[in-house]
Structures are given as C-alpha cells and as structure tokens.
C-alpha cells in the first residue's frame, strides 16, 4: 500500500473515525455492564450503530457561536486540536509494515505533540468567553502540565533502556525481561496518561457537577464532535504508545501482529472503563499534590533505576 493511501484509509482518517465510534460504543456497553444495565440495544444488531446515529445527530446540529466569543479562534480550535492528534497516529506501527511514517525520533515527536495540547484546550476555553469554560481552560493547563512531566520521564526511561527513539526498533528489541524491568515505568505512564487526557478519576477540567463541561461547555454540534474526537484519539494514541513501549507492540504467538496489538489496547481500555465505574473524581489541589509530590519523584527514581540497570546488567 502506498503511504497516502495508508494515511487516508488504514491507520489514517477513516480508521480513526471507526475506532472513535467503536470505542464510544464499547465504553457505553461496558459501563452498562458494570451498572447491570443493557446499554445501547435498538439501533443495529446489539445497538452497534447507536454511536454512529449519535454522531450524525451532532453533525446535523446548528452551528452556534456565543455573542462575545472570539469567532475566529472559536471555530478554528477544534480543527487545530484534531490535526495535532491525528499527526500522532502517523508514527505508530500497528504491525510490522503497517505504519505511515517511521523516523529515528518517533517517540520524541509523539511526546512533543502531546505537549502541544494544553495551549489548544486553554484557547478553546478562553475563546468561548464564558466563566465555566474559562475555569475549565485554566484547570486543563494546570493538570496537563503537571501530568506531562511524569509522562515524559517514564517514556524516557524506555528510550534509555533500549537506546533508541524509533518505535519499530523498540518493539523488535522488547522481551519479557524488558517488560519486568519497565513495569514501574508502565504504571507511571498509564497513570499520567489518564491525567493528561483527563479521563476519570482525573476528569477535573470537565467535571460536570462543578464546572459544567469545562472548556467544552460552549461548543456544540460539529465542533463539539471534533473536539471530543480529538480527545479520544489522544488517549488512543497514548495507549498505542504504551503498548509499543511496554507491552511489546504487535509481538505475540499464533495470531497476526495487528490482532495482538488490538487485544493489548482493548485490555488497557477495559481497565480505563472499570476505573471510571468505581473511582470518584479527586480535587484539583489533591491532584497537583499527587503529581508533584508522588508521581514526579517516583518517575525520577524509576529513571535512575533504569539507568543503573543499563549500566551494570547490559
């Protein structure tokens, strides 16, 4: 397959849309299972088309911009956010030859793009010119910056261990031993992923009961769909990175590589949904304390530990 075809279809836009719909569907279905409900049921077989119907409803909606809002920024932000996160997917190898781009700085580029997200979300809140959006924007910057440092540090420990930043090489060199050595880094990475993409229990910027919907409050229809899509894709990309760095990517017996990749991703998503069903949201000051006093020192210690192992064992 040629690169532009890949970018358009398989690990590209169309694929992302399908993934977005499926993840949304499974989130609802699994949450419903934990709640002892049935979940989506009537649209399509097992309600599988329910999320598609919801998204098409969103696309039909009126395009509303608040009177005081900064009109250019307000309508531009969703697309900027979407482009930023879609670029992440290009660097992810789903199987041995299914990737759009592969450079020697894959990991660095991905992390740099993730770091680019907070200003975008802050501007989304600021451009809305509404009180709750503004508070949500401030919270998102606070939270993401404090979450990104452990994310970087834990991802760097992998780079140190394997001695490369190329995703494909990392996957090729990974083994069970490397998984064991990098287990603490994995836990830190997953926790900070939840913080950076504000999933529950760290969904403070869009805490419904406190600040309505945070920076998403004033968005509606197509803009809203694209913003939510970009947030979901960010989480998806970071989970892909987690699978590549720690769980051995597409490696696995019998089944083809892409299937193994998605099995691992599904496991991580199941964990996310179950956490959402059982853990109440924590407060902003508690989160900051947790990030700076617990997570960042632990990530630093972990980096030192990996360096020591690299020095003496390999």
């Amino acid at each position: 397959m040629e690169a532009w075809l890949k970018a358009l279809f398989f690990p590209g836009f169309l694929f992302l849309l399908v993934v977005f719909l499926m993840i949304f569907y499974f989130e609802r279905k699994i949450l419903a299972d934990v709640h002892l409900r049935t979940g989506p049921y009537y649209v399509g077989k097992w309600g599988i088309l329910q999320t598609t119907a919801d998204v098409f409803k969103l696309l039909q909606k009126e395009f509303i911009i608040q009177r005081r809002a900064n009109k250019l920024l307000f309508s531009l932000i969703p697309f900027v956010a979407f482009l930023l996160v879609v670029a992440l997917i290009a660097f992810i190898p789903f199987s041995e030859n299914l990737w759009v781009v592969s450079t020697s700085f894959d990991l660095l580029i991905i992390l740099a793009l993730v770091t680019g997200m907070p200003p975008v979300f802050f501007y989304a809140g600021w451009a809305s010119k509404s009180k709750y959006s503004f508070i949500g924007g401030l919270r998102v910057v606070n939270q993401m910056i404090s979450g990104e440092i452990p994310l970087w540090l834990s991802a760097l420990s992998v780079a140190v261990f394997f001695g490369t930043l190329n995703n494909l090489e990392i996957v090729k060199e990974s083994s069970f031993l490397s998984f064991l050595v990098l287990l603490p880094a994995f836990l830190i990475f997953i926790t900070s992923t939840l913080i950076v993409t504000d999933r529950p229990p760290f969904d403070i910027p869009e805490a419904e009961q406190e600040v309505v919907y945070g920076f998403l409050t004033e968005f509606g229809g197509f803009n809203y769909a694209i913003l939510v899509l970009s947030k979901l894709v960010e989480l998806f990309a970071l989970y892909c990175v987690a699978v590549i760095l720690f769980l051995g990517g597409f490696k696995g017996p019998v089944l083809p590589g892409i299937v193994w990749f998605f099995i691992k991703i599904a496991f991580l998503y199941l964990f996310t949904f179950v956490v959402r069903a059982s853990t109440p949201r924590i407060r902003m000051d508690q989160l900051l304390r947790f990030c700076w006093k617990v997570l960042t020192p632990l990530a630093l210690l972990n980096l030192a530990f990996v360096i020591l192992i690299k020095m003496f064992l390999f």
Partner: peptide, 13 residues
C-alpha cells in the same frame, strides 16, 4: 452523593 463525584455506578445499582 457519589454521583456528584463523577461515578454513576451507585445510582444505577
């Protein structure tokens, strides 16, 4: 009460 902290499981149960 638990619902205001973003967990809707108790309400459903």
């Amino acid at each position: 009460f638990v619902g205001v902290m973003g967990v809707h499981t108790p309400m459903q149960w």
